[in-house]
Design a protein around this nucleic acid. Sequence first.
RNA 1: GCCCAGGUGGCGGAAUCGGUAGACGCAGCGGAUUCAAAAUCCGCCGCCGCAAGGUGUGGGGGUUCGAGUCCCCCCCUGGGCACCA
Length: 881
Amino acid sequence: MRRGPGRRHRAAGYNAASRLPPFPAVDMQEKYQPQDIERAAQTHWAETGAHRAHDDSDKPRYYCLSMFPYPSGKLHMGHVRNYTIGDVLARYHAMRGFNVMQPMGWDAFGLPAENAAIANGVPPAQWTYANIDHMRSQLKALGLAIDWDRELATCTPGYYRWEQWLFTRLFEKGVIYKKMATVNWDPVDQTVLANEQVIDGRGWRSGALVEKREIPMYFFRITQYADELLSGLDTLPGWPERVKTMQANWIGKSTGVRLAFKVPASDELLWVFTTRADTLMGVTFVAVAAEHPLATRAAENNPALAAFIAECKQGSVAEADMATMDKKGMDTGLKVLHPLTGEAVPVWVGNYVLMSYGEGAVMAVPAHDERDFGFAQKYGLPIKQVIAVEGEAFTTDAWAEWYGDKQRGACVNSGKYDGLGYEAAVNAIATDLEALGLGEKKTQFRLRDWGISRQRYWGCPIPIVHCDACGDVPVPADQLPVVLPEDVVPDGAGNPLNKRADFVNCACPKCGQPARRETDTMDTFVESSWYYARYACPDAGQMLDARANDWLPVDQYIGGIEHAILHLLYARFFHKLMRDEGLVASDEPFANLLTQGMVIAETFYREDASGKKTWFNPADVELCDGVHVCKADSQPVIHGGTEKMSKSKNNGVDPQALIDQYGADTARLFTMFAAPPEQSLEWSDAGVEGANRFLRRLWKTTYDHVQGGPVAAYAGGALSDAAKALRRQLHQTIQKVADDIERRKQFNTAIAANMELMNALGRLDGDDATTRAVRQEVLEGAVAMLAPIVPHISEALQAALKPGVAMAWPAVDEVALVQDELELVVQVNGKLRGQLRVPAAADKAAIEALALASEAVLKHTEGKPPKKVVVVPGRLVNIVV
RNA sequence: GCCCAGGUGGCGGAAUCGGUAGACGCAGCGGAUUCAAAAUCCGCCGCCGCAAGGUGUGGGGGUUCGAGUCCCCCCCUGGGCACCA
């Protein structure tokens, strides 16, 4: 675990008394009544400030952060899962003596508020604040150990003013710049659409065919940090490998060659980037994006080409759409000259070539690139083999895997480069190109700069003023924040801020002349890129103060795997921006990351004539004679697959009914028991009964025990074999549960181990003092081990078992763990044939002898001598005959 | 299309470093208790087989004394793909 300088101890092994004040002792009722217990416990925590994080404390710190929610209206099971995972870790560390900070806030800007406004005519601000109030009360009902004093909402000027302040600093520094970018344009609604709002190439409300349109936008120069974002992944051992892999692939560092084709009868050069310069002699055409200047020029007196280019500009800008559409192209009639051979090469326009990636042009080598191969086949373009692999035959009829294999091949049909392998060929060709001034080796990233301008109302205003004389002028710090008016109701036709004269009209901060305020707002990923730091100092009169460094980096960050790339990459990038501004001292924001698997649920919809879909909540759908129908009107609905719970697909399952019926502890226990955190979970409430049953049994067992009068936990003395075995199980369980929570982050097995422990306790008979002392020890241990998961009932049970004593994590008694005998498995030829009890101290030879003499072995070897005997200490013996 | 995960009984899942597959729980079945039911308690519960035993972790192949776990190929499901958050 990475630590700031000298401020913290290692998490493992640190075991001090809990900071939680004891719950007042009350008369224990026979029946488990979660509502009363939970209300009392939550009141007690609030009154004693039990979950407050202390900025000045000698204890080691533990900053436990769950990704803050978008206030969509009500909690769904994905939230419950996410926040319970964080709460288990927070409470566990509090029990182990850490000064824990677990804050909560609201990712409050975003598209759904505007959609709700369009649907209901309610201003996004009003809708958002009402949702926050409701969801806050739901979170409180879950009994999370949150320090509510640090709560923040990103849509408040007190928060976003600092984002605007940093924006102006970065703009002046050149980290933020302006350029043209492509967006989805709805020609009917006259508005920019999010990718989510484009369905099958049409606008979600108008049904109009979407067009690509170029507009000016502000960009963060994230590519300047590409190398550091990549190498920084190696400094994050506490991150899941899969997330690091995804980020590395996203950044996509590749080394290749940037090279140019000459445009005849001009000084112009057509640049391309390729990682396969070794195949340069196999180029049979060049493909450029529809927006490429060369294409534009060729279309000037070529109506067919102009029409094709117009067609390319239809459809969404989403990469998934670009990559799955039919590959189409058209000859421009232009030729460019091959940099090495001088041969004329035709230039095509391809709808799959992206202007925003690389040079907006690619060299095509159909023989050795699968996409080019398909394209050449379709349009009858030549395919020229320039790589050969021994023993493999090349044919232009069908693509074969090896055509694109750069490891095995060598150049052919490539003149002086024949016989060279991949690396040698790339080097030789790059050297020759360099000598001609037509190319050089280059490192390229797949990562593109981060465009943050949004043509939307409900977001953080971009603090720029447009002045005819002075250009784009950042708003000076003393004029911040640029406050977003909150009494606006968007209507779906463009950004309503454009119509607000009181917002738009202003004076230029530089020359004082009338000027126009920028009406674009920022991508909401900007707010979520630094909130984790603001929690440390939510009341600071600046963006961040020294407290941010005391708490950062976050010790444990928890959130859905769907954020593996975008949010987590942007937050890492923003942290480095803040570091370079002197606001934070660390390089990375999150030391340890737990990526929660999605809670998924079925989706159901109906489609109207225009193709518009209406989504139905699974709770309102039932299965009738094998057909899914809406309960309200008994008419069929279409099953849309199983997807992550979301507002847009209306498949969120509200936990409220669960909490009302069984209490928060049952909801928490059930959610943690259903599956390990990292695994995706298809929602079903089958089994809730079982979780509740376990809590009732735990309650009843404790009740029966305390009725016998107070007794101290076992501290020594002679024990029956049964009591000794139970104590061994208790202390094994303590070890296991600590490991499950701390290292494995797998709570379902921690719960199962406690269930087994309680089952074993139920089998221990006797009412003598020693037996009761062991029972007390086991109950104290189980209650403490379960406390992070089911905190309310644990508080009440602890108060009954040990009145007036604060809960602490139980210590492992090493002596109780010692075993005299072990049971081994006996296999013959790898098949299980019996068990064998051996002294714990027996060596391999002794075990082998015992095994060979055992009945099971004699029976299954049929007297044949063993060829080989494998002894795995503590595990098994395998006899091979 | 590309990148990343996952697939184990009727169901959720366990098996942590290649070593007893199915812990724990749900559902189901049988029994106790009850006038009856709920609740509770006890027992059974992968598949085939009377049994001995065989077989079994999405499908196919491989490595190994031994594979759910490692390697190769394929299928299916989920997440992401830069304006959902």
